[in-house]
């Protein structure tokens, strides 16, 4: 069985007016299905990319994967365990959460501006009780900072002293600090300029190789997908419309929606 499996994953949002208004106007409930019966599976150590335009439900899937949102129906299974099992005790839930972490889209909003970088990276270590003792924690933070290409002395600085790309490295170090097996990357490069994008993607690739990390990669950027993904799922209005390998997707797109998506990507032709 695959490492991460989504079965019939569905998420509804209730956009209805208050009950009293509906009773007076006789209008029915308005339910928006952001994610509709999505199935996919990810092998350990590989990258699965979800692509789609804004509003296609890809970020909703990311939030459900890490437990920020509960699915309305369906299940997410990691390493044979149901992530949203209501029968799980709080410490078991916490233990599962440790294994699946997230790198966020905005390098500006994802780091608390009032915290030193060292404290930001140490927080998951403390919260999960992974390492005891301030000194050992400090050593681990230094190690993580160096691993993502920053200096260990950067631990004493505040987030605003770093560039967007460096902040995203800090965000990656924080995600790594709880020693996860799955990292959900929610458009980690869309706020960065192109030259920095490549550096961050290369870092993610190197880390994947070293720790056999499994990535769920959310993006709308097809160039990013082609370098990162082993398998690509195309989302349209909450439904998974196509699933392909990168070469297959770019050479033989099956769906009209996928073709439209491929054609709408800007390309530069010289000559």
């Amino acid at each position: 069985m695959s490492f991460v499996v989504a079965k019939g994953l569905t998420r509804n949002y209730d956009l209805s007016e208050p009950l009293i208004v509906r009773a007076l106007t006789m209008r029915p409930k308005r339910i928006l299905t952001a994610v509709d019966n999505v199935n996919f599976s990810i092998e350990k150590g590989t990258t699965y990319a979800l692509v789609g335009e804004s509003g296609s439900g890809k970020s909703t899937i990311a939030k459900m994967a890490v437990g920020l949102l509960k699915p309305s129906a369906g299940t997410l299974i990691m390493d044979g365990k149901n992530l949203n099992d209501p029968a799980l005790a709080r410490n078991e839930q916490l233990a599962l959460r440790r294994r699946i972490q997230m790198v966020f889209q905005s390098p500006y909003a994802s780091l608390n501006p009032r915290w030193r970088v060292g404290d930001i990276i140490a927080e998951p270590i403390k919260a999960f009780g992974l390492i005891d003792g301030t000194k050992a924690q400090f050593m681990r933070v230094s190690e993580l900072l160096e691993q993502v290409g920053l200096a260990s002395s950067d631990a004493n600085k505040y987030p605003h002293e770093f560039s967007g790309g460096q902040r995203q490295r800090i965000s990656i170090a924080r995600a790594l600090s709880s020693q996860p097996e799955v990292i959900v990357c929610d458009e980690p490069t869309s706020a960065l300029d192109v030259s920095v994008q490549a550096q961050v993607l290369n870092l993610l690739k190197a880390l994947q190789k070293e720790y056999a990390l499994t990535y769920l990669f959310i993006t709308h950027d097809l160039a990013v997908v082609s370098t990162m993904a082993n398998k690509i799922g195309v989302l349209n209005k909450g439904k998974l419309v196509e699933e392909q390998s990168p070469t297959g997707l770019f050479s033989r797109p099956q769906q009209d929606y996928t073709k439209m998506l491929l054609n709408s990507a800007p390309s530069i032709n010289f000559g």
């Binding site: 959460r97 889209q105 994802s110 608390n112």
Partner: peptide, 26 residues
Amino acid sequence: EKEYVAAARLIGLNRWQIMIRHILPN
């Protein structure tokens, strides 16, 4: 609504910890 609060929820901090440690200073 900012992502650093989501990051704090991801590591299982409770409401009070998030309110006092993360939001209050901001």
